[in-house]
Design a protein around this nucleic acid. Structure first.
Lengths: 139, 139
DNA sequence: TGAAATAATTACATACATACAACTAATACT
DNA sequence: AGTATTAGTTGTATGTATGTAATTATTTCA
């Protein structure tokens, strides 16, 4: 026999998925705004967050090393990132954002994190409760 | 000066995005489980939900007509959907799921809607509140 | 009835995602 | 010192996503 809590969790999760992935998926919008695929945006945001080696970028993106090279090549060609020496290990390179790259990453984050109107229309108590619960879920 | 409510909404929405799109994105998992790209899964789920014309499928997926043909061709080749006559308009065709297609779509939905453990670990009151608020957001 | 619009297909083109093999340079280990 | 390992690159291959142009069959409408 199914626990009520499990049923509620499934219902809530389904609703969240519809809300985030079906009704308010911003990935296409971000890709168009920045003129690159969402995967490139994802890589750029990662690099902007902190300089990283191609290896760690590949791990983060769950891609292989050659594809990481392709993505960084593309971002570098756009002038958004640059390869710099890694004093700790001369085999590897640290990929860093350039100022334009940082601006693009921030623009992407801004679009991604803009809440839908429905969220602003919530009663203040509900909004506060939602924020508190989501924060707890992320811990 | 920025409203507190807006700030809270942005924080909550950011958290939801991280939770749903970064920490618990099930798209890769579904694609692997069903042996097809997530876009094919999305189309299959739409068709399983209700038979539809290629035109309406293209609208739903935000793709053009030729790509809709390609996707339906692929799903049909896998035996998951079939084109049937549309009595209302003989120019168009109604795409329907086959029994295996329905099973695959349901498997996809099951994976997509499985809540993460963190959700089950919430205090019952928080879980109930989350479910209630999410349901309200979807109205 | 004849012209315009629509649904679907076919062919073609390009960018993107993904994987594997082979190679160089640098590091780690025995 | 010599071998194995690691980081990155290059080349190649396949599937997928996306768009345009042209074609056929059917419907709508002036």
């Amino acid at each position: 026999m199914m626990d009520d809590r499990i049923e509620t969790a499934e219902h809530a999760w389904h609703g969240l998925r519809v809300l985030l992935l079906e009704q308010h998926d911003r990935r296409k919008e971000v890709a168009e705004a920045l003129g690159m695929s969402f995967n490139r945006v994802k890589a750029l945001r990662r690099i902007a967050n902190q300089p990283c080696t191609l290896r760690s970028l590949a791990e983060f993106m769950v891609i292989d090393a050659p594809y990481a090279t392709v993505i960084v090549d593309d971002l570098a060609k756009r002038g958004l990132v640059e390869r710099t020496a890694n004093p700790a290990d001369r085999r590897s390179k640290l990929v860093r954002v350039t100022p334009p790259g940082r601006a693009a990453a921030e623009e992407g984050n801004r679009i991604l994190d803009t809440p839908p109107d429905a969220l602003l229309a919530l009663p203040p108590d509900d909004l506060a409760a939602l924020d508190r619960i989501v924060t707890r879920l992320l811990d």
